[in-house]
Design a protein around this nucleic acid. Structure first.
Lengths: 157, 157
DNA sequence: TGACAAGGTTCTATTTTGGAACTTACTGTA
DNA sequence: TACAGTAAGTTCCAAAATAGAACCTTGTCA
């Protein structure tokens, strides 16, 4: 299977990956959350080649995850900002950070911690059920067919 | 920057990506959560080439995300199961599914829905603060240096 | 006039994938 | 005994993506 066939599958994981499924894209978003906005800043911070950066940013803009906004007219200069869709990616990033902190940080502890302004505490993100607010565990969850499911269901669930 | 340099960086996103940062790996884990365990089943369900599947499974085993267990002796046959580290990946997958469902499912609705056995309801995963249990919003969160932070902090946060 | 800046594009070499066929070690059937 | 089948890989070559560096464009500033 080629990658461009992925977003046609009937699976939200696959469809998400068709957009953000390469590592550079995820790192670009990470830095966008840390307030990076300009081409040269992304390039310097990430060490990505300019060629790939241009193509990834264009893709993110095309798909609505970021928007390209002129911040001056002469000469024309642009910056890249997260859209609402892009800001919403934050929950995935938090989950990714939590996983890395738990399993990969080792004895040194996590490289970054997070402060929740609303309550003033350092926190970990916890994924809970929208209905009962209990933390979710794999074994308590049963996937069922949704309205958008297309066959072949068993092949690409 | 080459990919093998990534896991040396002082960032949990980058370190996580060094393990699960390609699309096939994430799809392998997706199917593992749907109870796939054997080489040929992964291959048939995903349409991945056998070559890549072998290399990705080997990597997941080496890094402790999955384990390779013999399920018969003669002839020797193996299956791949999620370890605790692998099962813990589920929160990331849930976040990914939720993002895809929200932004990519379109009018048809999500392809899969999830039932929470504990409360009996269909649910969405919600990411909340471990301290105050309020849902997290990007703008309420401030990253601060953690114990595992190594310079250059500004370059690869 | 020349140096500098931001935001790209173009070029080639290297690395990674995709696709298909082949291998190994056994089992079950004719 | 020969032959087909199964699970889990490995090998090979062609096609696609990435890395690294240089170059281009439009403008400002000294």
């Amino acid at each position: 299977m080629k990658w461009r066939e992925l977003d046609g599958t009937s699976c939200s994981v696959a469809r998400s990956l068709a957009i953000v499924g390469d590592r550079w894209t995820i790192l670009i978003l990470r830095n966008a959350f840390l307030r990076t906005r300009r081409f040269d800043d992304f390039q310097a911070q990430l060490g990505i080649t300019r060629h790939l950066l241009a193509s990834r940013l264009a893709k993110l803009v095309k798909l609505g995850v970021m928007s390209k906004v002129a911040y001056q007219e002469r000469p024309p200069r642009y910056e890249y900002r997260l859209t609402e869709m892009g800001r919403d990616w934050y929950s995935v990033q938090l989950a990714l950070v939590a996983w890395g902190d738990k399993w990969l940080a080792g004895a040194a502890g996590p490289p970054l911690e997070f402060l929740h302004q609303k309550c003033g505490h350092k926190f970990r993100p916890v994924t809970v059920c929208s209905e009962c607010r209990e933390p979710l565990d794999t074994r308590d969850i049963t996937p069922i067919a949704g309205p958008g499911l297309r066959p072949p269901a068993a092949v690409t669930p």
